[in-house]
Amino acid sequence: EPSQADLDALLSAVRDNRLSIEQAVTLLTPSSGGGSGGGSMDAKEILTRFKDGGLDRAAAQALLAGRTPA
């Protein structure tokens, strides 16, 4: 399960175009075949909204942490 520091680094990389959204989703869902963790939004949607400015960093982190299976 990614830590808050991992999520923060991942969000920074996506925002700075050092990591594509697809690459980030793969890192967030290493063994689930890329499927959502059952959250209301999947990781790709969360990351896309964050990059487009629709979500701030704290909200994106909380959503990603919340949808990651324990």
Rank of each mutant, 00 (worst) to 15 (best):
S40M: 13
G38Y: 07
L63Q: 04
A59D: 08
D42C: 15
L55Y: 04
A58I: 07
N17A: 05
A24M: 03
R67A: 08
A13S: 04
T26E: 15
S3I: 10
M41W: 12
P69H: 13
A5M: 15
V25H: 03
R67K: 08
I21C: 02
R15N: 05
L47Y: 01
S32H: 11
L19K: 02
S3W: 15
A9C: 15
P30K: 12
L64F: 02
D52E: 14
A13I: 02
R15P: 00
Q4V: 07
L64Y: 01
E22S: 07
G37R: 07
A70N: 04
L27W: 07
G35N: 10
P69F: 04
F50Q: 00
K44H: 12
A58Y: 08
D42R: 13
P69L: 11
A5N: 14
I46G: 01
P69K: 08
G35W: 03
A62R: 13
S12Q: 09
R18W: 06
A70W: 02
N17T: 03
D8A: 10
G66L: 07
L28N: 01
F50I: 01
G66K: 13
G35I: 08
L55K: 01
E1Y: 15
K44S: 08
I46N: 01
S31Q: 11
L10T: 03
L63F: 04
G66V: 10
A59C: 13
V25M: 07
S3F: 15
A13V: 02
L19T: 03
K51F: 04
F50H: 02
P30Y: 15
A62E: 11
G34M: 12
R57F: 15
A60L: 03
K44E: 06
L19N: 01
L55G: 01
G33P: 11
R15C: 09
S3Q: 10
R49T: 03
S40D: 10
L63N: 02
Q61A: 14
G33W: 14
G53M: 03
M41F: 13
D16Q: 10
Q23P: 01
A43R: 06
Q61H: 09
D16I: 03
D8W: 15
G37A: 08
Q23T: 06
D6A: 12
D6N: 09
K44R: 12
R57Q: 07
D8F: 12
Q4I: 15
S32Y: 13
D42F: 13
R15G: 05
E1F: 10
G35K: 06
A13R: 05
S36G: 12
D56S: 10
L55E: 01
V14Y: 03
A13T: 01
R67D: 07
T48N: 05
T48L: 08
A58Q: 10
G37K: 08
G37F: 14
D6Q: 09
L27Q: 05
D56F: 02
S3C: 13
A65Q: 08
P30H: 11
Q4S: 11
D52T: 11
N17F: 04
R18A: 07
R18H: 09
T48D: 03
S20A: 04
P30S: 15
A5G: 09
L19D: 01
A65T: 08
I46K: 00
M41E: 07
L28Q: 01
Q61P: 00
L55A: 01
Q23R: 08
G37W: 11
L11M: 04
S20M: 03
N17C: 05
M41A: 06
G33L: 12
R67I: 14
S40E: 07
A65G: 10
E45M: 07
E1V: 11
T48G: 04
A9Q: 09
L11K: 00
D8S: 09
D42M: 10
R49D: 03
A65F: 09
A13Q: 05
A59R: 06
A65I: 07
L11A: 00
L64I: 04
I46F: 02
T48V: 06
L63I: 04
S31V: 06
S31W: 14
A59P: 01
A9K: 08
L64C: 01
L10M: 05
D16R: 06
D56C: 06
I21F: 02
G34D: 08
E22V: 07
E45A: 10
A62F: 04
L47S: 00
E1M: 13
G53F: 04
Q4Y: 15
G39H: 14
G39Q: 11
G66A: 10
A9R: 10
N17I: 02
M41N: 05
G54T: 13
A9E: 11
G33I: 12
R49Y: 03
F50S: 00
S3A: 10
A59S: 13
K51T: 02
T29C: 08
T48I: 09
Q4A: 13
R57G: 04
I46Q: 01
L27P: 01
D8L: 08
V25C: 06
I21H: 01
L7N: 03
S12Y: 04
A60R: 01
E22Q: 05
L11T: 01
D42E: 09
S12C: 09
K44F: 15
G37E: 08
V25Q: 03
A70M: 03
A62G: 04
D56P: 05
N17V: 03
G35Q: 08
A65D: 04
L47V: 02
I46D: 01
S36Q: 12
L7C: 04
L55R: 01
P2A: 12
E1C: 11
A59G: 06
S31P: 11
P30W: 15
D6S: 13
P30N: 14
A43H: 06
D42Y: 12
K51G: 02
V25R: 02
R15Q: 08
S36M: 14
L64K: 00
S36W: 14
L7Q: 02
L11R: 00
G35D: 11
P2W: 15
L7Y: 06
E45F: 05
A60D: 00
G53I: 01
R57H: 09
G53Y: 04
V14G: 00
S31F: 12
R57C: 05
N17R: 05
R15E: 10
T26V: 11
S32C: 13
R49W: 05
